[in-house]
Design a protein around this nucleic acid. Structure first.
Length: 589
RNA sequence: GCCGGCGUAGCUCAGAGGCUAGAGCAGCCGAUUCGUAAUCGGCAGGUCGUCGGUUCGACUCCGACCGCCGGCUCCA
């Protein structure tokens, strides 16, 4: 019934199952081989889909019992046999009806479902050995082409990504052209694990999580230094840019959320409680309450733009399975601000925010990428306003000469937004900053200003965050710097290491001098050898180790060692203090 | 929330239906007074995540719950 096709058709855009480049093709083929191995070992397994993904591939199966790590070993061994046999990948074509019949006979309900949804008359299948799978290709010529691969993990995944549909078992694997690339990749994964902020957070005593507060960190003294330094910098920037800081209540009546519209959209994601027969909630956002500050006075067009900033502590009920260290928390400390302005000020205000974004990320050596997120399906407000808002954002981006991509339908329910992503030291992508234009909240809360003509007008509201949240951003920073924070952020900036007890008096003098100069300095006067103290300071990634022995005591100097291992030799104490103050004051990287 | 895995000392980990559950590091005490990544000796440290069940006996087996990890879903 099937026609074998001698050569791959010239595939066009949209006609393949994986990008027709060498590596995705290889990985896609590896997933077919994995499916074959699984079917041979577990004939009762049902096949779902198996694409190539970044760094590897997966295949989803339905099987009554869970896969175990031992199963992975067996599957991998079987795959090697299939690869050894060097079966050619053969493309075949048949009518959709024939294919449905074929997979019904093979008892593959997921394949049948895919085929029923397809709009085409003829479908392609690929065969290697006696294993046939529905697939648009392309594939490598034969299984022997797959050399460097490894199965990695087993995970659950909903059929078609829909939580109402069956939960399948997904096996993840990775595949590369050469063994070298494979081991390089595995090494990269190991390195990433070493940088994991959860691990570094524990090792460096930055923060801790406890069962009693899932999704909310306990900041330890050293981690709190990071929070404070970021706050300090953040306030400096906003103070000089005409922002006024406010703070609004955390526990508020549901009336506020009903008025803002959040109650309808996000009630289920709010922490609610009843007090004296009134329903309250922990605030999941700052914006509705910010409007109370706006309305505190009658506003004139001369008052605008009014920029109200707030480091607000929010709570959002994130489902238990989604929590992850500082990256996904239930208690979020947002570096928020709301700008109330006239329509003619929008572009200038957005421009100002974009400038802050650039300043911030340059400081950390991160390159921001900009995305415009447009009208979502369940949007509030009329179409024309949305179009106008999207246009204003586009214009601001263009005026700032910023390249951007579109995230279609990804806007907030009250307005479109510019999302800013950064790439960290490991090349991973994070969404951090966001700038959201909002005509809805002013409407809902009936905000007004008196214009030059004496008429009451409605202001526009811009929501924006630069870090996103302190929790998440500190998580990203920790991994970005692998715990070796620049001196201005480092919890301990310098540690004094006396060589022996004989110089403890001098070491105390040095330590005292550093403290009086405002340096976060520690004195390690424990009864240990120098090598031990250095090792420990090194592990803790203290930027400067100041070795003091009898020579330094005599000369009023410190022997400076950087955490890079670089030994700067003896430096007069006052010189070191002055240099360090410059480095910290300039927030040098 | 769902699928799977895990939970033993502050940390990293070993152990096991049957006598007082171990190690390294960290901590404390003592010795050593030392020059750029771990000095030596001693001491102390545990309701084996919680609750319930099976059993003569449970840290070990079973169940529920809590938390964490890998994913999926979600993310104003």
């Amino acid at each position: 019934m099937a026609n074998e096709v001698k050569r791959d058709l010239a595939l066009e855009e949209g006609e393949y199952d994986c990008p027709p480049e060498p590596l995705p093709t290889l990985r896609h083929s590896a997933s077919h081989v994995m499916a074959q191995a699984v079917k041979e070992i577990f004939p009762e397994a049902r096949l779902a889909i198996g694409p190539s993904i970044e760094d590897g591939f997966y295949y989803d199966f339905q099987l009554s019992r869970p896969f175990t790590p031992e199963d992975l070993d067996r599957i991998e061994a079987r795959m090697r046999e299939i690869i050894q046999a060097d079966h050619p990948f053969v493309r075949m074509e048949m009518s959709r009806a024939e294919a449905i019949a074929f997979f019904e006979k093979g008892n593959e309900p997921f394949k049948v479902e895919i085929l029923r949804d397809l709009q085409v008359d003829v479908v392609s299948l690929y065969r290697q050995g006696d294993f046939i799978d529905l697939c648009r290709g392309p594939h490598v010529p034969s299984t022997g082409q797959i050399r460097a691969f490894k199965l990695l993990s087993i995970a659950g995944a909903y059929w078609r990504g829909d939580e109402r549909r069956p939960m399948l078992q997904r096996i993840y694997g990775t595949a590369w052209h050469t063994e070298e690339e494979l081991s390089q990749y595995l090494w990269r994964v190991e390195e990433a694990k070493k940088r994991d902020h959860r691990r570094l957070g524990r090792q460096l005593d930055l923060f801790a999580f406890h069962d009693v507060a899932p999704g909310a960190p306990f900041w330890l003294p050293k981690g709190m230094v990071l929070v404070r330094e970021l706050e300090r910098f953040w306030r400096e920037v906003h103070d000089t840019r005409g922002y006024e800081e406010i703070s609004t209540p955390i526990l508020v009546s549901k009336k506020v959320w009903e008025q803002s519209g959040h109650w309808d959209h996000f009630r289920e994601s709010m922490f609610r409680l009843e007090v004296e027969e009134q329903e309250f909630s922990l605030k999941p956002m700052n914006c509705p309450e910010s409007t109370f500050v706006y309305r505190h006075r009658l506003r004139s067009y001369r008052d605008l733009p009014l920029r109200l900033s707030e480091i607000g502590r929010l709570h959002r009920f994130e489902r238990s399975g989604t929590l992850a260290g500082l990256f996904r928390v239930r208690q979020i400390t947002m570096d928020d601000a709301h700008i109330y302005c006239r329509p003619d000020q929008i572009q200038a205000e957005i421009t100002g925010v974009l400038e802050i974004v650039k300043t911030f990320y340059a400081l950390f050596g991160m390159t921001p990428r900009f995305y415009l997120a447009t009208r979502p399906a369940k949007a509030m407000g009329d179409r024309a306003l949305w179009d106008h808002a999207e246009h204003a954002l586009r214009e601001a981006l263009r005026a700032n000469d910023l390249a951007y991509e579109i995230k279609e339908g990804d806007g907030a329910f009250y307005g479109p937004k510019i999302d800013i992503h950064i790439e960290d030291a490991l090349g991973r992508d994070w969404q951090t900053a966001t700038i959201q234009l909002d005509y809805q909240m002013p409407e809902r809360f009936e905000l007004e200003y008196v214009d030059a003509d004496g008429q009451a007008k409605r202001p526009v509201m811009i929501h924006r965050a630069i870090f996103g949240s302190f929790e998440r951003f500190i998580g990203i920073l920790t991994e970005h710097f692998a715990g070796a924070f620049p001196a201005w952020l480092a919890p301990v900036q310098a540690r004094v290491l006396p060589v022996s007890e004989k110089v403890h008096d001098y070491a105390r003098t040095v330590h005292g001098r550093l403290k009086s100069a405002g340096v976060r300095a520690e004195l390690d006067d424990r009864n240990e050898k120098l090598g031990y103290k250095i090792r420990e300071a090194q592990v803790e990634k203290v930027p400067y180790m100041l070795v003091v022995g009898e020579r330094e005591a005599r000369d009023g100097a410190v022997a400076v060692r950087r955490r890079s291992g670089e030994d700067l030799g003896p430096v007069p104490l006052e010189r070191f203090v002055a240099d360090l103050q410059v480095e910290i004051g300039g927030r040098a990287r």
